[in-house]
Each structure stands twice: as C-alpha cells, then as structure tokens.
Design a binder for these strands. Structure first.
Lengths: 188, 188
DNA sequence: CAATTTGTTAAATATTTTCTTCACAGTCTC
DNA sequence: GAGACTGTGAAGAAAATATTTAACAAATTG
C-alpha cells in the first residue's frame, strides 16, 4: 500500500471539485433569499445523491435538528423530496437534480404567492379607496390622491395577471417551446 | 371647522390603504431575499413618488444612514434611480413604478450573476475532474465518481445556457411577445 | 412489551444582521 | 471663505436569525 497517500490526495481533489460546485450553488441560493447553509445542504444533496439526516449531519458537521429544519425548508421550496431506501429504516431525502425543474418549482411557488398576496392587497386597498372617493365629505385633494393611487394599482394589476400567465406557461412547459432547451454540442 | 376631525379620518383611511399596498410589496420583496425594511422603503417610494432621504426618514421613522444604505441596495437591484428636483439642493430618488421593468431589471441582474458564477465554478471543477480522470494512479472507483459528477455538470450547463437565453429574451422584450401583456378590460 | 432508534420540538446560546448614533468630508450659499 | 447642510462611513447597540443541546414522541425491532 505504498501509494495509499496518493489515493488520499485524489480523493481530496475529487471532494474539492465537489465543493466548488456546492459553494456556487449555495451562493446562488443565497441570492434567492435562501440561507447559505440551507443552500449548502441542497448543493451537497445535489452532488451526493439521496441522503439520510445523519449522513447530512456528518458531511456538513452540523446538528441533526439543523438538518431536519433545513430539509423542511427545501421541501417547502419544492426542491427536495422524501424517498426511502428499500429495507432501510432511516428516511432518505433526494434533491431535485434537474435545474429546469428546480427553476420552475421554485419560482412558480414564489410567484404564485406573490400574485395571491398582492392581488388580495390591491382588492382591499381599492375597496377602501372607492369608499373614500364616493364619500360626500372627503376633501377634493384627498380624493384626488386616492384616484392617483387607483390608477397606479390598476397598472400593477396588469403585471400580476401577466405574472400569473408566466407561471402557467412554466407549469405547462409552454415556456420551453418559446425558449427552447438546447441540446449538448458534444457528448462527454 | 366642525368636520376637521372627519377629514383626519379620511386622510387616515387613505394612508391605511397605501399601507396595505406597501406591506404586500414588502412581503413580496422579502420573498425575493430583500430585507423587509428595504422592501417597505421601496413600497413607500412606489406609492409616494420621488422622495428625499429626509422625507423617507420621516415617513418610516428611521435614521438617515438607514435610508441611505437602503436606497443604495435598491439602486444595486436596479429598481431605484437618482433624480433631482429642479432648483432644489437635496437629492431625490425615484422608484421604478413599472413592475414589468422591475421584474426584468431585478431578475435579469440576478440570473446573469447566477449564470456567471456557476459557469465559472463548473469550469474549474471540470478541469480538476479531467485531471483526475486522466491520471494513471487514481483508483477506478474514484475515477468513476468523478465521471458521474462530470455527467451531472454537463446537464446543468444546459440549464445555465438556457437561463442566459431567458435573460436575453427579457432584455430584448422578446419574452413579452410570447407571453403578452393583456390590456385592461375596463378603464377605471 | 421493553429497548432502540429516528425525527422533531422547545429552550438556551451563539452568531449574524440591521439599525442608530456620532463623526466627518464634500458642497452649496451668502 | 465661514457657516450651514447633505450624504455616507465607522463603531457600537439592538434585534433578528440560526444553531445547538436537551428532551420527547412515534415507530420499529427483537
């Protein structure tokens, strides 16, 4: 076993290559408002395949509750799912490896929520403004400002409707007809 | 002035309508990884129009350095710009009111960065893995794992290229041909 | 059914981030 | 150019978030 030391080096080289990928994924997710350590967790699952909580804990050197909550967040974002290894008792989790699906799952979820939240806010605001505008007593200057807000809101409604359409186009895959996925130039 | 009290109430009603809108915008931006108070700042500028730092400070009841850094962040996201009121000394800032432009500016910037970061990470990782695979000494099992990572990476490259295309389609406005902006049903 | 093991909750702790106060540099005004 | 004002940087305080330890409930095994 004279070259066992060398093998260790190669192993390390492999791991460091993985880490480069993991870190850049984590940085991206950080950009998306996902905490860095949760991003690292996703990245790790992405390169390592399905894992149990204990494997994650060991790999990342963190506590198990951290892994548990981290995994839950990732599940909320629809980018990690439960699986099971046959015969095994421990629960395993698997990361979405297809970034196209990651993209659609993640943003669909986010944008749907945006649309819901804001449309309902606009509705409430409009009711209140309508009341104000129709009242006899309110001052003209206040009414005018209310009408101005109304105009802004009706502009923004266009946007939320459009965003809803975009989500739809992502869910149906329609978007990928418009902006197609290019195949690899060469096989590797 | 018997009904001055009533006017106050209408004024409050108007402000609370604004607040509903501001809060839902802030929540959305929170979703996007923008801090809640910065989101509130944007929302305020959105409904109030252009503002000076002091006006913001007063409106939000926060310190001026906070406003300063908040505005800077929003400028980094390309959703707020400097303006000036003619004759006035104080600098004013104006929020992007067109959500379509907000959307394109914000995500274009974010996704471009994602593509850059990850493509360069993939490049480094690939080099390292190539070395490993081509080496004489490295164990077969390690080489096999390296090749597996290579496969994953070349899959993900497709995605980043696609994302780059999407950004392009947003910048050129092409996307809005595929997913058109619907006009209002009725004028308000 | 007792004994282990797994995943999660709750409370305490640590860390990071945000915000404010204070200080200062650059600009405009007179 | 003195004085006043605007915007930003730095340091410290405050608040929010993330992480861990400890305890527990549910499930599985023998």
């Amino acid at each position: 076993m004279t070259d066992s030391h060398h093998q260790e080096e190669w192993r390390e080289s492999l791991e460091s290559a993985k880490d480069i990928v993991i870190d850049s994924i984590a940085e991206t997710m950080d950009l998306y408002g996902v905490t860095r350590s949760v991003g690292t967790l996703y990245g790790t699952m992405y390169v390592e395949g399905d894992m149990t909580l204990d494997e994650m804990r060991e790999k990342l050197g963190m506590s198990k509750p951290s892994m548990s909550t981290g995994v839950r967040k990732l599940q909320e974002f629809n980018v990690v799912k439960k699986t099971h290894r046959r015969g095994k008792r421990k629960q395993t989790y698997v990361a979405e490896k297809d970034f196209f699906r990651f993209f659609t799952n993640f943003f669909t979820q986010q944008w749907e929520r945006e649309v819901r939240t804001n449309l309902s806010a606009i509705e409430s605001a409009r009711e209140q403004l309508d009341m104000l505008i129709q009242s006899e007593e309110a001052e003209a200057s206040i009414k005018e400002e209310a009408r101005e807000i109304q105009r802004i809101l009706s502009q923004s409604m266009k946007y939320y409707k459009w965003l809803g359409r975009l989500v739809e186009a992502m869910e149906t895959g329609e978007l990928f007809q418009y902006i197609p996925i290019e195949e690899d130039d060469q096989e590797r």
